[in-house]
Amino acid sequence: MSPTRIPVRLRVNGRPAEGLAEPRTSLVDFLRDELDLTGTHVGCEHGVCGLCTVRVDGVAVRGCLMLAVQADGAEILTVEGLASPDGKLHPLQEAFAEEHGLQCGFCTPGFLMALHELIDDEPNPSEEQIRDVLGGQLCRCTGYAGILRAVQSAFAKLGASPSTESGA
């Protein structure tokens, strides 16, 4: 079987991007290895840990459970696209920094992208909705108390200024 590489054209963080991918290449490997966007991390590679979460056409998905070829033509948002062009962090990122929402930081991009979808979908999420999203993301060193505080703080900030600033 020949490892034919297929052209994949998509938009990432508002800009057109393209590269070649074997059919078996996951979206997260394509983002990292072909497009040099290494902010999205790779963990379990079978959909459990959520480290590789990115937004595809607005919805948060596992980058390890989607093939790059499936994303052809899609609009992708990665953690690199959260901050403003001038470098100002997204309120969600600020809240993680302020509330000790990260320790080693390896899982953080996945948390941010999963929560970024929630911010767009639910201006006032219930704690159950927040937990439903957090439940799909694993953190093994910070602990979830700080993360939950960060989420609550982020929603409080965003309530004060409803714009999500950047994003899909």
């Binding site: 979460t53 948060a60 999963a114 979808e117 439903d132 999203v133």
Partner: peptide, 12 residues
């Protein structure tokens, strides 16, 4: 449906 995995999985 709400019991199936997480929103991040239900999206796909």
């Amino acid at each position: 449906t709400g019991h199936i995995a997480h929103p991040q999985i239900r999206n796909r």
